[in-house]
Design a binder for these strands. Structure first.
Lengths: 176, 176
DNA sequence: CAGAACGTTGAAAATATTCTAAACGTTCTG
DNA sequence: CAGAACGTTTAGAATATTTTCAACGTTCTG
């Protein structure tokens, strides 16, 4: 497979990764290189192929390993760490959904919960009704998202309709 | 509803947004403020509440409107633009999936397609077999993702199992 | 029609992120 | 055990992103 074909794949995947919000451009490029290479590559080989410093490649490779997108392999006869692309994309996607998206969703749920508690402490009865309704709606929606991600990670169908059904809420009242 | 309760919700949602990969911290803060405010706010009111310059708020609000997370409302008796939070989160999520995630997925599919074409032109028969297999596997997987997003956007259940089934592979052969 | 009230734009400042090169600590080799 | 071969860390340089302030163009008001 010709070098410039690989190079253009590498850069294309780098661009796609950069706009994904999950991997950086260089992470995408490293993965792409490993993906089209038949056999594991060392840090130095990757660095040379991608024109990057070894230290930088070291850092990015670690992220890829952490997402289960790349596997570290020991190569007999060499002291260097070698890496190859993982082929179980679904596993990697599970990891990303579970650890990245779900973590963000949980952050929202935490904030909502804390705010609800704060509202209960500082204002009584009617005066914060609007806020309470909105917080409840937000919590419900993200609760469904959380459940949806959970279902996806376990390989179950994602119940999109439920999501659509949850929301319409907390109507606006005029003020001033 | 007390100001410091709102402030802490605003900052919490800002933090969650910053780690989402979709909205920036300020975008999250603006949305949070509007979400807990009963009635529309002007650019100046938002800027004052969040301690941001009006020009910056103008830019971020535009993004939120673009994602259908915030609606522009004309308020009788005022020349200013006013904004309020949208409550149909599902609509916003559809927008995000369709325009952001799907766009990234399509980028990958394009790169794969172009690379496949390049391989066919530059190398014949066996010598690029490994690369061809891998490209095909990647294309299949992302094709499924694309279909899955399409299903989600249309409100249909997301077929996670199909995803899990597609992949295993393009096995590795030793080299050197 | 003059001036004020807007939202937006563009250039520069502030800040955050990414990358490199050198230093370091460890593990292997002879 | 001395030195080479590694991967990682760190401090600073290079780049990108975010934010502000001032200028601008338009729309309303008197």
């Amino acid at each position: 497979m010709h070098d410039d074909v690989v190079a253009s794949f590498v850069d294309g995947m780098g661009a796609a990764s950069a706009s994904s919000g999950i991997l950086s451009q260089q992470q995408g490029r490293i993965f792409a290189l490993l993906f089209l290479t038949d056999g594991p590559l060392s840090l130095d080989e990757i660095a040379a192929a991608l024109d990057q410093s070894k230290s930088n490649v070291s850092i990015h490779v670690r992220v890829l390993v952490d997402w289960h997108l790349v596997k570290r392999r020991s190569v007999p006869g060499s002291r260097r760490d070698h890496y190859e692309a993982a082929t179980d994309f679904f596993r990697a996607f599970q990891e990303i959904f579970e650890r990245r998206f779900r973590w963000t969703v949980r952050q929202v749920l935490d904030v909502v919960g804390e705010t609800q508690r704060a509202v209960d402490e500082t204002s009584s009865g009617q005066d914060a009704r609007f806020g309470r309704e909105r917080l409840a709606a937000l919590g419900n929606f993200f609760g469904m998202i959380d459940a949806g991600i959970g279902a996806f990670v376990r390989g179950e169908p994602f119940p999109a309709q439920k999501l659509a059904a949850v929301i319409p809420l907390a109507s606006r009242r005029t003020r001033r």
